[in-house]
Deep mutational scan, measured.
Amino acid sequence: TTYKLILNGKTLKGETTTEAVDAETAERVFKEYAKKNGVDGEWTYDDATKTFTVTE
């Protein structure tokens, strides 16, 4: 399944996708990605669109 991440950081904005077996796995991948890019904020997930959003 393809999951999407929307980054709404103070200095970094953008989108990325990952293939994962479930939302929990995708969330771990995306949180590591955000951490590596210095983005830390509020996380939300929309199951209907398989989209995570992190907003600083």
Rank of each mutant, 00 (worst) to 15 (best):
T51P: 00
D22C: 04
D40Y: 14
L7D: 02
T49I: 07
K31D: 02
L12I: 13
G38A: 07
G9S: 09
D22F: 04
T2G: 05
Y45R: 02
T11S: 13
T25L: 06
T25Y: 08
L12A: 09
T18Y: 14
F30Y: 02
K10R: 14
D40C: 09
E42Q: 13
A34T: 07
E15P: 04
G9T: 13
R28Y: 07
D47M: 11
E56A: 08
Y45S: 01
K4N: 06
A23M: 11
G14C: 08
L7C: 05
E19T: 14
D46Y: 05
D46R: 03
D47H: 10
E56K: 03
K4Q: 05
L7K: 01
T11F: 13
A34E: 01
N8I: 12
G9A: 11
G14T: 12
E15L: 09
E27H: 11
K36H: 15
T44D: 11
A20R: 03
T1S: 10
T16W: 15
Y33Q: 03
N8H: 11
R28T: 08
Y3L: 01
L5I: 03
E15Q: 09
K50S: 05
V54G: 01
D46P: 00
V21G: 12
T49Q: 07
L7V: 10
N8M: 13
T44I: 08
D22W: 03
T55R: 06
G38M: 05
K36F: 11
T49R: 07
A20W: 02
E56C: 05
K35T: 14
K31H: 09
Y3D: 00
A26E: 00
T17L: 10
T2D: 04
Y3E: 00
E15S: 12
K13L: 07
I6R: 06
E15A: 08
K50I: 02
T44R: 09
F52R: 00
A23R: 15
D40L: 12
E19Q: 10
A48S: 13
T11W: 13
T18G: 03
K35V: 12
K10F: 15
T2K: 10
D47N: 09
N37D: 03
E15N: 07
A23F: 14
A20C: 06
F52H: 02
A23P: 15
N37R: 12
G14I: 15
K10E: 06
E42M: 13
T51A: 04
K31M: 09
T1R: 08
L12E: 06
N8Q: 11
K13V: 09
T17A: 08
A23D: 06
E24F: 13
F52S: 01
V54D: 01
Y33G: 01
T16C: 08
T1K: 07
K35P: 01
E15Y: 12
A48H: 10
A26Q: 00
R28L: 12
L12P: 04
T11R: 11
A48R: 08
E42A: 12
K36D: 08
A26N: 00
E56V: 09
E27L: 11
A23K: 09
F52L: 01
T17K: 07
F30G: 00
T25A: 15
T25W: 08
Y33T: 03
T44W: 10
Y3I: 01
T44L: 10
G14D: 08
A20Q: 08
Y45W: 03
D22Y: 04
Y33I: 05
G9C: 06
A20G: 04
K50Q: 11
E27I: 09
G9K: 04
K50R: 15
L12F: 15
E32H: 09
T18Q: 06
A48G: 08
A23T: 12
V29A: 12
E27N: 06
Y33C: 04
E24G: 10
T55P: 01
K35M: 14
A23N: 07
A48Y: 09
K36Q: 10
T49M: 06
Y3H: 03
T55C: 06
G14A: 15
D46V: 06
G38W: 06
E15V: 12
E19M: 13
G14M: 14
E24C: 09
K4T: 13
G38R: 09
K50L: 09
Y45L: 02
K4R: 12
A26K: 00
N37W: 15
G41Y: 02
T17E: 07
W43N: 00
V39N: 03
K36I: 14
F30E: 00
A26L: 01
T44A: 11
A20V: 05
E56S: 08
D46C: 07
D46A: 04
L7N: 02
W43G: 00
T55L: 06
A48Q: 14
D22Q: 04
A26T: 01
K35G: 07
T1P: 09
W43K: 00
E42V: 15
D47F: 11
I6W: 04
T18V: 13
E32S: 10
K31C: 04
T55N: 09
L12Q: 11
K50T: 04
G14K: 14
E19N: 14
K50G: 04
Y33V: 05
K50C: 05
F30K: 00
K10C: 11
T49K: 07
I6Y: 08
E56P: 06
E24H: 10
E42D: 08
T2A: 06
F30Q: 00
E32P: 02
K13H: 11
T1V: 09
T1M: 11
E15T: 11
D47R: 05
I6G: 02
T44V: 10
V21S: 14
E42H: 13
T11I: 10
G14Y: 10
T1L: 11
D46W: 04
Y3Q: 00
D22A: 04
G41I: 01
Y33H: 05
E27K: 10
T25K: 07
W43Y: 03
V54Y: 02
D40W: 15
A23L: 15
T2F: 14
V54R: 01
G41C: 02
E42I: 15
K4C: 05
K35H: 12
N37P: 01
A48L: 13
T53E: 05
E15H: 11
F30H: 01
A20F: 04
